[in-house]
Amino acid sequence: MKDNIYLDNNSTTPIEPRVLDAMLPFLRENFANSNSAHHFGQAVNHKVKMARMQIAGFINAEHNEVIFTSGATESINIAIKGVAQNYSNRGKHIVTISTEHKAVLDTCKDLEGKGFTITYLPVLEDGLVNLADFDSAIRADTILVCVMYVNNETGVIQPIKEMASLVHAKGAAIMVDATQAVGKIDVDVDELNIDLLCFSGHKMYAPKGIGVLYVRKGANKIKLTPQMHGGGHEGGLRSGTLNVPGIVALAKACEIAEEEMKDNEKVIGDLRDRLENELLKLPNCSLNGSAVNRIYNTTNICFSGHDANVWIGRMRNISVSNGSACSSAIVEPSHVLKAMKLTDEDAFASLRFSLGKYNTGENIDTVIEKIRELTQSS
């Protein structure tokens, strides 16, 4: 692994050493169940409370608005299905975007089979939603709108604050998949006026198996019908013994992200731009998605006339992607790129490079040289 160049950080990230150090005691000596009544358990429960406050503060939420899950996919399922069941007497219409993660799209497809109507909004060629079309899609019977903050394949950033205002003006709720945003850019649920928000630890240098569902409380609180039963943990929304090591690790990852976010944006952004600028000099290459409204660590490039899967197989020490890791076992063109009007051929010819804080200028130069070689030999 030492010689591997990893440019697939939107898929998952390595655990930060300080995050690992924070969680290890809760795998060894501090292993008690945080819901146990004895002193051992209550000492661990105190650490969970402190971690919950740390994570809540990171997104400017209240501690009782943070629900711990196994990851963003579970959070998304709890949120969408929970709203659908609890508010079905108001309406059975949900709006989402055609470029959402499969966790959202497949959950919506499941609800279609249960009598709900789903509007899958198209995007423009740059991956952004037309706000006029977005506003028009929200109806009197719309109960929920689901929007991904930062697209996992292209890095395109949707105007969430403006969208939330339009959603609330029509009396619906908005759920935001912020998996690719939290830890990279400032996410303030209060300022953005979000009702529900989901993210995962393993996208921000914490371990796999820990995630968060933010559920707004207060005057405009959102009520969800629980999808799991068995103990009433997490306010009744997510029964099961808490993943204490993961919770503590995620809190530490949030602390580190808050300290490093601005520096990461500059350093990683410069590396991404260096990679992108050189690759776009190659013949028949083009950028997929907006060049302006996107996250700083991601570039998705079409190498027209080439097969990205073949290239991935030939770059044995370089990890890149040609789509979402959650769909990588399926040999079909990216639904995100197809929604942005790319042909099947160009979708199959596209590579996503998603950088992280452990990448170096030397890594980038090596990748540029390797891609140059591949364009000449294939």
Rank of each mutant, 00 (worst) to 15 (best):
R314Y: 06
I94W: 07
S70W: 13
P159W: 11
E258P: 01
T69P: 02
N151T: 07
I312Q: 05
S377E: 15
E234Y: 00
C198N: 14
A173L: 15
I194E: 05
E62D: 14
S321I: 03
D177L: 13
L271W: 03
A347E: 03
I143C: 04
G113W: 01
S378C: 05
Y358V: 01
N363C: 05
V48Q: 10
A84L: 06
E373C: 07
E16L: 09
D186C: 15
K357T: 07
V129D: 08
G71W: 11
S136N: 14
T298N: 10
R90W: 05
T73M: 11
N9D: 07
N9K: 10
T179F: 02
K252Q: 14
I194K: 03
S36L: 14
L121D: 09
K81F: 01
E112G: 06
G115R: 01
L342Q: 08
N264M: 06
K102S: 13
N45G: 13
I364F: 02
F26M: 07
A291T: 07
T225S: 00
I76P: 04
A43P: 04
I371Y: 01
G91V: 05
N300C: 15
K341Y: 09
G57D: 14
L111S: 00
I210M: 03
L287C: 06
N309W: 09
L166T: 11
L124A: 14
N33E: 12
F303V: 04
E125V: 10
V145C: 11
A140K: 15
C285I: 01
Q376K: 14
M53T: 08
S290F: 10
E153V: 15
S327R: 11
M50V: 12
N309D: 12
G41C: 12
C254K: 04
R274P: 00
R352I: 06
D346P: 02
A43R: 11
Y296T: 01
E258D: 13
Y120F: 15
T179V: 15
D110E: 14
A219K: 09
N300L: 02
E153W: 01
K109N: 08
N151F: 04
L355D: 07
S377V: 13
L166M: 15
N89K: 09
N317T: 13
L280W: 06
I268P: 03
Y120S: 06
G115F: 07
N130S: 04
P226C: 00
A251D: 08
N193G: 09
G246F: 03
A79N: 10
S34H: 11
I118L: 10
M228F: 09
S327Q: 13
G201C: 03
A308I: 04
T343C: 05
L355T: 02
G82V: 02
G230M: 05
G113D: 12
V244Q: 03
G235I: 00
A84F: 03
S200G: 13
C285K: 01
E332A: 15
G41I: 12
H46I: 10
R372T: 08
R139M: 14
P207G: 08
I80N: 00
Y205I: 03
G183E: 04
A61T: 09
L196A: 10
D346M: 06
S239E: 11
V19A: 08
S239G: 08
D106Y: 11
T179N: 15
N322K: 13
H38D: 15
G269Y: 03
M1Q: 02
